[in-house]
Design a protein around this nucleic acid. Structure first.
Lengths: 145, 145
DNA sequence: GGCTTATTGACAATGAATAACAATCTCTGT
DNA sequence: ACAGAGATTGTTATTCATTGTCAATAAGCC
């Protein structure tokens, strides 16, 4: 399987854009985090590692990585967007506790079925879906009593 | 069926909060719009009708309406959040064309099943879900050839 | 190596959303 | 109906994620 960097290199080539060390270290950082991330925490963790890039460069890179299907917006919370990398990972959805903010991942084959039915019914070519389920985890249910 | 205002009145009572004319006209405006809305366009359409409230009051009301299960965040796009009212409306999800931004609504009973299974599997009390399906509508598919 | 031009970092700017605060209004108890 | 407590309002200032600007730099092609 091609590496994320190779995928992105090809993507840049096709668009007449350049492969720079800044883009490389940001991508390496993103793909070393196996969790959701936001721009600010990414920036901070890179600074700690002496991997210095400006925050602007991160903001500029993100739409490109999305277009290249390497990362995806996951959800927007408390004024900022969270992302996760999707290349090389099985697609999954998120179950979130609205109280303690715990996030669980799950997948369900019925979503593929729903996609197929929507494609038929509305003549759409389905590209992807995003399902967020909000609820209360066991612990937070208990505490509310 | 109770009106949105009655529901909200009870909600405020239970929380020891007050029912004000500002809150009333904002709610009336929201429930007269049968579509997605954002704070800014709501504010503008209210100004046109001489229904003057400050934008701050709208921002302050929205989390309360969400808590009262009258409205819901639908999606975040171009830096702002979009909402729709849900009380008195059957729950539905959104199918969006990524190219022309058309939005279709649909519902699928399998989502309820998925919710039930998640509740069992993870001991969650499910409150709601949000499914966005992204794709290309027929027209945009044709144009891409 | 040299040239073109995309990209970078630093800084300023934008804009949605939130906070502060004094003036006002709701609601409860009398 | 009245008064007092305290919630809510509009105004204004502030926050903070994200985007724009621009001169300096560097990638990629010859």
């Amino acid at each position: 399987m091609k590496s994320e960097l190779d995928i992105f290199r090809e993507f840049l080539k096709k668009k007449g854009m350049r492969y720079t060390p800044e883009r490389e270290i940001i991508i390496k950082e993103i793909f070393s985090i196996h969790d959701h991330f936001d721009v600010d925490s990414l920036y901070i963790s890179m600074r700690k590692k002496e991997a210095r890039v400006s925050k602007a460069s991160i903001y500029r890179l993100i739409p490109l990585l999305i277009e290249a299907n390497l990362i995806e917006e996951v959800f927007f919370d408390r004024g900022q967007m969270y992302y996760e990398h999707i290349y090389g990972h099985e697609h999954h959805c998120h179950l979130r506790c609205v109280n303690c903010k715990q996030i669980l991942e799950f997948n369900d084959p019925r979503l593929k079925e729903i996609e197929r039915d929507l494609a038929d019914k509305f003549n759409y070519k389905i590209l992807r879906h995003k399902l967020e389920v909000m609820g209360l985890c066991q612990k937070c249910q208990d505490e509310q009593e």
